[in-house]
Design a protein around this nucleic acid. Structure first.
Lengths: 189, 189
DNA sequence: GTTTTGTTTCAGAAATTCCTGAAAGTCGTG
DNA sequence: CACGACTTTCAGGAATTTCTGAAACAAAAC
């Protein structure tokens, strides 16, 4: 086992924060804290390391790790002659961001897109004219956004970061590419 | 009041779906359904319209509307000689997306960024070397992402959509602009 | 086949969140 | 300031989610 000593100030502050934020992120406190602990660990940890360090029940940790695996947010490893599973987070933070984006989309967007597609298929009655139009607009917008995500997700991290850093400057390239007329830059609200 | 008749199939399917998705979106079922109803309504609705249509208690609707106002997701309007508040969603779907992005960031990202800044300020002890480095990396990444969001948020909707539609093509412009060496395009996983 | 070491399931206790009806609050008008 | 029309607050019951310990399960070593 790794962590038998008490956590440092720094680590426990970070872990407690992630636990509290967990609820806003759709995961629970336990899972948030487990992820935070793994994130800060240089070495992979096994379930009992987490039990010892965070003081949750063994089964709670087991469930939490299972949920993190469901999110593809942890990697498993093993040691020779040791049957235990050791858990870690990806070294590359961008890999974590990509996974989060993909998994959140899977849970939060895709089911709605599918429902909107179904609903916009059926021809609307007269009383539903406006509602049908709204639903169709929403479907179109979400389709554009998910396609954009698909396309960005195919980029190398280097290129993705380069795009990110370019930020607002990107608009100039788009103008040339898609013949959008120049527009005044909106003042920050 | 507007809606005294039963909801159409289309509307109730949409509203029920939003209620169910609400939990994944960090809002509760009631709030999700209220928003869905407003979203599909051509005319603004008052609180009692919502009570009548959805069958929630008056106070629950009041709380729900208050929460939606806290998210800046609804607009208020009034009629001459009528003190009631009438609620509607923005006509422009992109305005809704922008608001959602801003508000989610405010709740989900900004508090963490602030915490990470504090934690990365303090000089780390030897045992915290790795943890401190991880925290600093996370802070840098989130700073880059929030700045990107700030910059995109300043763009006109036309330009934002043009960027979106350009998708992966954007990488070519970035290459030229930032002297990133050409890299092979990653195959879709 | 039994022991040893580790993981998972599951029923119910504990904690949290949601929802309601009743009471209190607000505000323009007579 | 009292009325009428509308909105908000709040205590507590209902529903849901989280967490635990005990038991079941799995698989390698003996």
């Amino acid at each position: 086992m790794q962590e038998t000593t008490a956590l440092s100030e720094l680590k426990s502050a970070f872990i407690l924060h992630f636990g509290e934020m967990g609820s806003r992120w759709g995961i629970n406190r336990t899972v948030g804290q487990i992820y935070a602990l793994l994130f800060l660990s240089e070495e992979p940890l096994c379930a009992d390391d987490i039990v010892t360090t965070l003081g949750f029940s063994r089964s709670n940790v087991s469930m939490g790790l299972k949920e993190l695996q469901g999110w593809n947010l942890v990697t498993l490893s093993h040691r020779p002659g040791d049957r235990r599973d050791f858990y870690a987070t990806p070294e590359d933070l961008w890999a974590i961001v990509r996974t989060l984006a993909t998994e959140r989309r899977k849970r939060e967007i895709d089911p709605t897109l599918s429902k909107l597609r179904t609903l916009s298929m059926a021809p609307p009655s007269a009383e539903d004219a406006y509602a049908h139009q709204r639903i169709t607009e929403a479907r179109d917008l979400i389709e554009d956004m998910t396609q954009f995500h698909d396309e960005l997700d195919q980029l190398e991290t280097e290129r993705l970061v380069a795009l990110l850093k370019a930020g607002r400057k990107l608009q100039y390239f788009v103008q040339g590419a898609s013949r959008v007329l120049p527009l005044p830059i909106r003042k920050k609200g």
